[in-house]
Amino acid sequence: MVDFGFGLVPSSRINLDLFDKEKYDELLSIEPDARICMACGSCTAVCTAGKFVHTSLREAMEDIFNAKPDKALETLRACQLCGKCSMVCPRGINTRHLIMSITKVYSKK
């Protein structure tokens, strides 16, 4: 689709062709549990940093699937790594490591 630049709001289009399979595989290799997230949002509900700024692991995971890794990084920047999210995750994901892995993998240009 061509963007003619007449939109009033920034485009929210998701272009899955941009999905970086290599980076995602790299993420899976260091944190395989990334694929079992069911986006329930428990992590976001208990987030310590979430009280102050907008931050959400659930959204970050979706941003990664939607080929918007920069947005995911932006969402996770405020994380204090306190580990509350990993205590409540119903899937038993090591969310703390997941957050660090996302930052590690996707902040490499």
Binding site: A49, Q80, L81, G83, R96
Partner: peptide
């Protein structure tokens, strides 16, 4: 709700971030 004490950040090796907290 307050902010984290900084120990988890320190344990994760993020010393500078811990200092901010």
């Amino acid at each position: 709700g307050g902010i984290c004490c900084g120990r988890p950040l320190m344990l994760a090796g993020k010393t500078e971030a811990a200092a901010a907290v």
